[in-house]
Design a protein around this nucleic acid. Structure first.
Lengths: 195, 195
DNA sequence: TGTCGCCATCTAACCGGTTAGTCAACGCTA
DNA sequence: TAGCGTTGACTAACCGGTTAGATGGCGACA
């Protein structure tokens, strides 16, 4: 582990940092723990990333970008999008928690990224609505988008309402997924996939 | 401020603690700041409440109880309930943040309280559904309840999706309230209040 | 009535462990 | 040997929690 793999070390640090921040937030995270988990010295963190806050910002941005890359937005199939968001939120509880921490702490860094993603989606929804000129949607795109995201992530690890209540008898993900898509369908007025 | 009003001092501490915890969470909160804001000595906190964690638990439970007292649950008018939850979440952003922090940190104290409230509501919904024996609801009560809460609080200060995006052009609360109630109506199948 | 002692309330100062952040040097590779 | 990657040792500040004591109202007793 001597030389040559600075890039690998950086990646290891980012991964460890992701876990630590996801578990404890910025204020609760311990730099020593991150270094230990990454199998390197604490000082490396400060050489590669300037500070704890910068490290968090980097981790957040990197993972947020992953979300936007992996989650294709389909303005003409919002129930399907909701289902995919749900899948993602269940597959990556750590990432959900990370986003929740970032929201609570006054983390300003990723706001721009999020705003851009949001307005892109809103535009796409407007375009889709214009194309299929039906009866005119009941809700504005901004409202729908937030509602869909809230619904799709309501059962994730970061939500105060979902998993912590009655942990044993959690509905199995498959039916939950279907119900979410169904609910979104009835809000948007889209045709339901189920019977 | 010498003697006699221990009760008042305790209340002042609890208020200051609520603000501090709401702003910074448990790990980020500073006991010194709480004491200063409460206008008393730090040691009093440790006399009246045993530790920082206990103080947080006390603050949380007190405020959670307030929620359950002030928010009447109406199983036969879920859109109205959603609207009231929304109003509450907008009127008390600090409390929303407090609950979000408690969810992220592994705060176990208030779970029992919440579970009790949840199952009471689920029972009430089942009873209401049995009484008005319509076509049988599309969704199970547990699902509906979580969905409603997620929707109603999606625009609160604690939500990652709502207010932080496009802060200037936030839809005004009145229409937002109506839209939420409307969305809940279309999920539950309840008659809509609007046209 | 004066005053003595008691107890609840509250405070200033302190403590020891922890934490973010730094520094000077070492080894490996080219 | 030049330099990047890496490290152990270090520090200054911070922070939760503690200790010893000040303040002042109040009842008991003479």
């Amino acid at each position: 582990m001597a030389t040559g793999n600075a890039e690998a070390t950086k990646a290891r640090i980012l991964e460890a940092a992701r876990d630590e921040f996801s578990a404890h937030g910025i204020a609760g995270a311990r730099v020593d723990r991150i270094a230990k988990a990454a199998g390197c010295n604490k000082n490396l963190l400060y050489i590669y990333f300037q500070s704890k806050e910068t490290l968090f910002a980097t981790v957040l941005e990197q993972n947020l970008r992953r979300v936007y890359d992996e989650l294709r937005f389909t303005p003409d199939d919002l129930p399907g999008y909701a289902a995919r968001v749900f899948d993602f939120s269940m597959a990556e509880p750590g990432l959900m928690r990370l986003m929740a921490w970032a929201g609570l702490e006054q983390e300003t860094g990723a706001v721009a990224l999020r705003n851009a993603a949001q307005s892109a989606k809103v535009s796409a929804m407007e375009a889709a609505a214009r194309e299929a000129d039906g009866p005119g949607a009941r809700f504005a795109p901004e409202f729908l988008l937030t509602a869909i995201l809230a619904l799709a992530t309501a059962w994730s690890a970061a939500s105060p309402f979902g998993p912590r209540l009655s942990p044993g008898l959690a509905t199995d993900p498959a039916t939950l997924r279907m119900q979410i898509a169904d609910a979104v369908a009835s809000i948007t007025g889209a045709p339901r996939t189920g019977p």
